[in-house]
Simulated assay, not measured.
Amino acid sequence: MTTILKTATQPSAILPRKIKLDWSQTPLHALKQAPEAGHYINAMHLLVHIEFWFCKLFNKALPEIQDQTLVADMKAFMRQEATHARTHIGAREHLAAGGTEIDSFLKDYEWFFDVVLGDHNLQQYPWLKPLERWWLNQRLSITSGLEHMTLFLAKWVLENHDMLSKAGVDQAVLDLLIWHSMEEIEHRNVAFDVYNQMSGNLASRRFWGVLTLVFMFYWWPRGASHFMHQDPSMVKRRSRITTYLHCARQGTLPNLQSLGAFFLNYMKSDYHPRDEAVTAEILDRWVHILPLASEWTPSKVS
């Protein structure tokens, strides 16, 4: 059973929400008819440490932001992202309780963001102090690029939920994907606007935009592969790229052509994520899909 709980009023048009999901009946194969694609969905539960990483960076940037509307949106963004992460963690804990080993993947993944893309203690060294703000801006550019990728995935989920249903998606997983996707679309402008206020350098946005695409197609397939190698039903395993292309042809994962087109939009000098969707239409269209939606009334708060 899925329950959506309305949260306290927020001084932002972005409304953090909580969702309770019952994972007790969720199988290892999130998509019964497409187990390989299902493991790509399972891998999403492993990647959510990045959402805590976003929150850490935003907390560092908050004192530098003068636009109080953006400050309110940043705080709502952080609440949404932290809730997303905790909810996905519930799903991965359920899979781990069923015997799936996840710790070795998480150790490498979290090390990458906490150490390689961490603070590096620049504030401790006076001669490196000028680099502290520069390094924060670079990571905010990474955040903007990664949010662009999650926006792409969110739009794909909402436009292709029927294909996921035909592939036998677990109901709790589908509820999670729709709820998460709606909120990703709702806060799609925030990371981009924060980066623009802190730096806005186009060359940096493009540079890190390319690298975030590399990050995505390294860690996401690696996470899916981590599940596949532990799945005894998968006797014949394809390479990571072959697996992805196979699932994309089936329509159970986004195709690379649409991803490429979406990515190229981000490279344009006049790009802004507000043009990618209309928030009110998305919420109005999809709120009824989730159970007990009558208890949840997303609204703009003055």
Rank of each mutant, 00 (worst) to 15 (best):
F192K: 00
S225F: 12
P254M: 13
G260A: 02
V194E: 05
Q138R: 14
T212R: 05
G223Y: 03
A261R: 15
E186D: 11
E183S: 08
L146A: 13
F152I: 01
G209R: 01
V173A: 09
L174D: 05
D162F: 09
L245E: 11
H246K: 13
G260M: 08
T150F: 08
W220Q: 14
I241H: 05
R188L: 04
H161P: 00
I178T: 03
K236V: 09
E184Q: 11
W220P: 08
L158T: 04
V190R: 02
T212Y: 00
L253Q: 07
G145Y: 10
F262M: 07
M234T: 08
L256N: 00
T242W: 11
L176T: 12
L259M: 14
V210H: 02
Q257E: 12
G260C: 07
V210E: 06
R249T: 11
P221C: 06
F227M: 12
T252Q: 04
S204N: 10
P232M: 07
E147N: 04
D170N: 06
F227H: 00
S204A: 04
W219P: 09
H226Q: 14
S181I: 06
T243S: 15
L164D: 05
H148I: 09
F262R: 01
S141L: 02
R188H: 07
L158G: 06
P232F: 11
L211Q: 07
F207L: 13
S165I: 11
H148S: 14
S144F: 09
L174S: 08
L202P: 02
L213W: 10
R205L: 14
D193R: 08
V157Q: 05
W156G: 01
G145E: 10
W156F: 09
T243V: 01
L177Y: 04
L259I: 12
L256V: 13
Y195R: 02
Y195N: 08
L256S: 05
F207H: 11
T242G: 09
S204V: 15
A224T: 09
R205E: 04
V235S: 15
G168T: 12
G260W: 13
F207P: 01
S233A: 15
W220M: 14
L136E: 04
D170F: 01
G168I: 04
I241W: 08
H226I: 02
W156C: 05
Q171D: 03
F152D: 02
Q250C: 03
S225M: 12
H229E: 12
N137D: 08
Q197H: 12
T150I: 12
